[in-house]
Amino acid sequence: MEPILRIRNLHAEVEGKEILKGVDLIVNPGEVHAIMGPNGSGKSTLAQVLAGHPAFTVTEGSIIYKGQDIQETAPEDRARDGIFLAFQYPIEIPGVSNSTFLRTGLNEVRKRRGLPELDAFDFVELVKQKAAMVQMDQSLIDRPVNEGFSGGEKKRNEIFQMAMLEPSLGILDETDSGLDIDALRIVSDGVNQLRSPDRAFVLVTHYQRLLTYIVPDFVHVLFDGRIVKSGGKDLALHLEEYGYDAIKQEADAANGVSN
């Protein structure tokens, strides 16, 4: 079986500073991978690099998505081909309504999939259906993208967009942070509904709680730009209990750092 995503020895830097220092990861269709790790270890960087943020430069290694090396692929083409990043800090776009924003993007994705553009009526129907899935208030649809949204509303809006765009690979960067308990359950339910044998998810999270709702197949620990430990869902429980200290020490020892 062809993996959806195969990352090999990925190095990436921003403003001359190396952040990713050799990431390896294979994600197969139908799988959910969780990535955990201390603040600043490079989780968001990995997510943004996968989505193609131009501020980051890949200096070594490769990202193979559905069998294609996407290093030279523009972010919009990655999105059209089914990569979706739910941002840790969703961006505000004053003056552009959520619906204009989504309809423009959705029609691009549909074009790539050989589907006709949605007319206004069908678009509204789809919005209703998907907003209901994440119990997002309809009034947020006509408001400028994320402007004045609460922290939780922004996160919900990301998942709503993902539901609209139906990606093959959903990368969720700390979507659980800032959600209240009910919202966490609702958003998780939304993601679970999207789970399917030909779709995969990478969840960046700090909290084991999310993983009780969206049960991952694999848990990885990213530390200082590398995946230093991988395991099953129990690894998250272990981390919750013991923290990252032991892993840090192991990683330092492996790198020959003494203290």
């Binding site: 193609g52 523009a74 972010p75 990655r78 999105a79 423009t104 790539r112 967009q161 765009l165």
Partner: peptide, 10 residues
């Protein structure tokens, strides 16, 4: 980047 990540060209 946010817009491009939602499939819009530059």
């Amino acid at each position: 980047f946010y817009l491009r990540s939602r499939a819009m060209d530059e």
